[in-house]
Design a protein around this nucleic acid. Structure first.
Lengths: 148, 148
DNA sequence: CTCCGTGCAAAAGGTTTGCACTGGT
DNA sequence: ACCAGTGCAAACCTTTTGCACGGAG
């Protein structure tokens, strides 16, 4: 995400915190920023690695708790993907994922045509709010390895 | 899955094992059957709970290893969903999921129209083989609770 | 008979919890 | 000043690994 967009999201975040009376701590700001700035989908531990250099004495526990808060606020998404650890995504707009079934790598896909899907409003009482398409296959690197 | 379908899948499984020279053990048969018979998407531990009553002295380790084998054989799918533990799905045909973002419950959706999506054959060297759509929203039970 | 699969125990992550202290409002 | 947020350590849960034994091919 480019620097301008990151700044904008951070501003919105501050406003949101004030609205809800949520204390705006250094940890929350920096952790959110780290998620926004990472292009891949970092695990809690990867976020910790980045932020711990900026905040002395930062605890892993805090990273987990803050990430949870961000998810609840709706400014970050929890990602469910093949690796053991849960991943996080600063993008909350509609987008999709290519998942390599061999190396578990995940890359974003934005396809205008893919976003036009008409999700059923309801299915047996279930209220559908949004959707994500997971394309499963084999990435370029793994294809080369397999062919060799 | 109905009993007839379960039997059919088990037969295919036996054949597949013989073809590949994979020893067909009681554990593999029973664990596969348990996954097929469960309508939700059980975690390894839930599978263990079901099968341990049928096989005395069954080890959790074995459940994990057998599930892994089944995934590699392609007869079971690994599910990546909000709960901490990995889930498994005996269905390997194209189908989609409704995920409740409040209680993390997952239900299957089969929509003929949803299966007609033309996935891009390739995206930057990535070979797309199949896809799954995850609809995110709120389930009926959670909607009632929220409204109350 | 030969291996591969299994069971057990222990280790290795990832994530959560209890409690005292600090810092934002 | 008050209360929520944080740090630390320990607990907890899921998953993996090493090794010896037993059963399938």
């Amino acid at each position: 995400m480019n620097q301008a967009a990151v700044q904008r999201r951070l501003q919105q975040f501050e406003t949101l915190c004030r609205q809800r009376g949520l204390p705006l701590t250094v940890q929350r700001r920096d952790i959110f920023q780290a998620v926004l700035q990472s292009d891949d989908h970092p695990s809690a531990d990867q976020v910790y690695d980045v932020v711990k250099d900026r905040i002395a004495g930062l605890s892993r526990t805090t990273v987990y708790r803050v990430l949870d808060t961000l998810v609840q606020l709706g400014v970050v998404r929890r990602l469910h993907h093949p690796g053991a650890a849960v991943r996080f995504d600063g993008r909350v707009d509609r987008h999709h994922h290519l998942v390599c079934r061999l190396c578990d790598q995940v890359v974003d896909v934005t396809g205008r045509d893919l976003d036009r899907l008409k999700p059923p409003r309801q299915r047996g009482g279930f209220l559908v709010e949004d959707y994500t398409i997971q394309f499963v296959g084999v990435c370029a690197a793994c294809r080369e390895e397999t062919e060799a």
